[in-house]
């Protein structure tokens, strides 16, 4: 019985989107950012969603991260329809199952590195000592054990992104969403960050990279392309052969 349950869980996709659309309305103007998106992301996948600016990839990432509700369509996270989850449940889902890595790091400037990493734990009724120990372990995992007491303003771009990744990892999420994770980094630091994300994926974490950087996209195991709000398996012709 237990083996069957484990197999069923393993076969359930982490993310399942069916006919997802998102329309932004401003007065009488309606802009369709996503249109009829179908997508399945399985456990331990490393997927790159690529597209130019304005293609709808950030909207897609926000829907995947439960920060935004789609206008229509069905989104299931590990088999559970997102629309059926109440706001508090979505907050818990974001805190426990999803890790965010942003292009601009989005660290809180008033908090030290370790306090930034502790942030997701602070909303989960975890004791202070355990919070601190898990945050330090997470920082150590990204190679920042020596910089725990520094403020973001005292760190380099690469270090800040590592702190952001440590924050995304601290709750041991099953799903990491990285939006242009190397966008603000130099090539070498970007490569380090990508190596880190690959290692996480190797450990079984599902990683979705949202990027317009071909090099980043090419490093993923699977690539999807988004253009004018529609997702396709193959790169548009103007991108050349992939």
């Amino acid at each position: 019985m237990r083996d069957e349950a484990t197999r069923a869980e393993a076969s359930t996709p982490v993310v399942s989107l069916r006919g997802i659309s998102k329309t932004y309305a401003s007065g009488r103007v309606h802009v369709e950012a996503l249109s009829g998106v179908d997508l399945r992301i399985d456990r331990a996948e490393l997927l790159a969603i690529m597209g130019p600016s304005g293609s709808g990839k950030t909207t897609l990432m926000e829907i995947l991260g439960c920060l935004l509700q789609p206008t229509s369509g069905e989104y299931r996270f590990r088999g559970t329809p997102i629309q059926s989850i109440k706001p508090d449940g979505l907050a818990r889902l974001r805190g426990e199952e999803i890790g965010f890595v942003f292009q601009s790091f989005n660290l809180l400037p008033r908090l030290t590195a370790v306090e930034n990493v502790e942030l997701p734990l602070s909303y989960r009724r975890i004791g202070r000592k355990e919070r601190r120990s898990r945050a330090l372990a997470s920082l150590e995992r990204v190679g920042l054990a020596e910089r725990t007491r520094h403020l973001p303003s005292e760190m380099s771009g690469g270090e800040r992104q590592r702190v952001a990744i440590a924050r995304a990892l601290v709750n041991a999420p099953s799903f990491i969403l990285a939006d242009e994770p190397t966008g603000n980094l130099d090539t070498r630091t970007g490569a380090d960050i990508m190596a880190l994300l690959h290692r996480l994926n190797d450990d079984g974490t599902t990683v979705v990279l949202v990027t317009h950087d071909l090099a980043v996209g090419d490093s993923a195991k699977r690539r999807l392309y988004i253009r004018d709000g529609r997702v396709q398996e193959h790169a548009p012709e103007e991108w050349g052969p992939r």
Partner: peptide, 16 residues
């Protein structure tokens, strides 16, 4: 506002 957005993204509820 950015800080609030980050907090909500990492699991804070509105009431937090």
């Amino acid at each position: 506002r950015q800080e609030i957005g980050v907090r909500l993204a990492v699991g804070a509820r509105r009431r937090d």
